[in-house]
Design a protein around this nucleic acid. Structure first.
Length: 187
DNA sequence: AGTATGATTGCCT
DNA sequence: GGCAATCATACTG
């Protein structure tokens, strides 16, 4: 049976891998996570790298909450806070295979093609109607729902360098499901 | 297929 | 004042 329990109190790389195949819903709308990226305080590409600031405070709070930030002044991006409190680590949700609330997501995105609904962090934000009010919210309570458990289904994992960053760009902390048509980009 | 560009805003140096 | 964990569109070859 599905569960809302998920162990976020581990390092971002492990959590990022285990999230592949997990379903995330917000108010019943969303899908299966097929692409993630790990970020960590020791990592020059992470928002938490320089220590805690008002913007990244959620990353330093308890694991298992959302960290939401504005990207390029335009998009809202969703992260899951992980590791131990105070460590400044999180996992960026980069792409979903849309499964629930397709019509709502199509309307929010202004597009029909399921393939492009949630293929990228900004698109996920728009499809799930994310904004700043979701920052720091616990992931095991409404409006969030996490379904499934790591290892329940066999997932062939792809690994590669993260996207859109300039520092630590060679660190292979991007993860995805092999063969998925819903990835933001090819690995 | 690949490369370029504008949109847009809050945070940090 | 500069920049950013992006996206859609409009080019080029």
């Amino acid at each position: 049976m599905p569960t809302n329990r998920f162990d976020f109190s581990r390092c971002s790389e492990v959590v990022a891998r285990e999230l592949i195949g997990i379903t995330v819903l917000i108010n019943g709308v969303g899908g299966r996570i097929v692409e993630t990226e790990a970020y960590d305080q020791q990592d020059a590409a992470s928002h938490s790298f320089g220590g805690q600031t008002p913007r990244n405070a959620a990353m330093f709070g308890p694991p298992g909450r959302a960290y939401v930030y504005r990207s390029y002044g335009i998009h809202w991006c969703l992260n899951f806070v992980c590791r131990d409190q105070g460590h400044g680590a999180g996992v960026l949700i980069r792409a979903l295979e849309p499964t629930a609330g397709m019509a709502v997501m199509q309307s929010r995105r202004g597009l029909d093609n399921p393939r492009l609904l949630c293929a990228g962090p900004g698109r996920v934000g728009q499809a799930l109607n994310i904004d700043a009010s979701f920052n720091d919210l616990p992931l095991d309570e409404p409006p969030f729902q996490l379904l499934g458990r790591p290892g329940t289904e066999p997932v062939v994992m792809l690994t590669g360098p993260r996207i859109g960053i300039s520092k630590a760009a060679e660190t292979p902390w991007r993860f995805g499901e092999a063969g998925s048509r819903f990835l933001s980009r090819r690995f």
